[in-house]
């Protein structure tokens, strides 16, 4: 089976989320084929889960000072600091190939590609809980899924490295004292590819490894492609009229 692969490089937070939504819309309407996309965030950004409160979770003044963008996702889950990482999104019909109907099982099914990708880089990782991947017991990838219009949109991040001090200045914490504790405990629980490998890898290395991982795990062949004209114009529109607005980002 041939599947479309989009490598869209780095984009702003609003544009990244708008592209995912536009692809979801166009795969659902049958105008675009099932699609995997690999991408990054520039400038760095914090994304929050659909049900989170932006003002409660994120220190917007600090984000502003440090040039970090913020955006609400259409998927649930927690706040994520997107910096030195690769993000993927998969947009496939709910009844596609052998994808399980159960949400927990479908997370594991799609995450199988990340495990294979990490394996290709020499990292032994495992799927854990509902939607995480851990290497050496530490979380290296978080994933979130929504189901709309008969489609699964799953996106997630694979950490290359993580600056936890920076992350916890961007996220709101109950007090300075707990900030230190949270950082210390996160150091025990979170890791990145380049924290594990002695020969450090680049954004591009991780993208090729993940693309190969998804192909092997899902038994598909990727065909490199670009966003269609219609996808691009909807992405532009949705970036400006939804993901870039206070109404959406401060909805809760």
């Amino acid at each position: 089976m041939t599947v479309r692969l989009l490598l869209t490089g780095y984009s702003t937070a609003a544009r990244n989320m708008a592209i995912d939504e536009s692809v979801l819309h166009h795969v659902a309407s049958g105008d675009s084929p099932p699609t995997f996309r690999l991408y990054g965030w520039k400038p760095p950004a914090v994304s929050i889960g659909y049900f989170q409160s932006l003002a409660e979770e994120v220190d917007l003044d600090v984000c502003d000072e440090l040039g970090v963008e913020v955006v609400r996702r259409i998927t649930g889950g927690g706040a994520v600091f997107h910096d030195d990482e690769v993000t993927y999104s998969a947009v496939i019909p709910e009844n596609w190939g052998s994808v399980p109907d159960s949400i927990p099982e479908s997370y594991e099914y799609i995450c199988g590609g990340i495990l294979k990708g990490l394996e290709g880089l020499g990292i032994d990782a495992r799927f854990q809980g509902l939607n995480d991947i851990a290497a050496g017991g530490k979380k290296i990838s978080g994933n979130a899924q929504t189901r709309r219009k008969g489609m699964i949109l799953q996106h997630g991040t694979i950490l290359i490295s993580i600056d936890l001090e920076r992350m916890f200045t961007l996220l709101k914490v109950p007090s300075e004292k707990t900030r230190k504790k949270l950082i210390d405990s996160a150091k025990e629980r979170v890791t990145g590819i380049n924290d594990i490998l002695t020969n450090h890898v680049s954004f591009e290395d991780v993208i090729s490894a993940l693309a190969g991982g998804f192909e092997r795990s899902l038994g598909v062949e990727f065909e490199r492609s670009e966003l269609s004209e219609n996808e691009l114009s909807m992405a532009d529109k949705v970036a400006g009229e939804k993901y870039g607005t206070e109404d959406w980002n401060h909805m809760r």
Partner: peptide
């Protein structure tokens, strides 16, 4: 879960927030 509520004898407003998942999201 973080829940915000404004109420007297009746609930005037309630906002349910958190890092959970619900499918479909509109259910919340």
């Amino acid at each position: 879960l973080k829940i915000y509520m404004d109420f007297d004898e009746t609930i005037n407003e309630i906002v349910i927030t958190g890092d959970f998942f619900a499918h479909p999201e509109q259910a919340i």
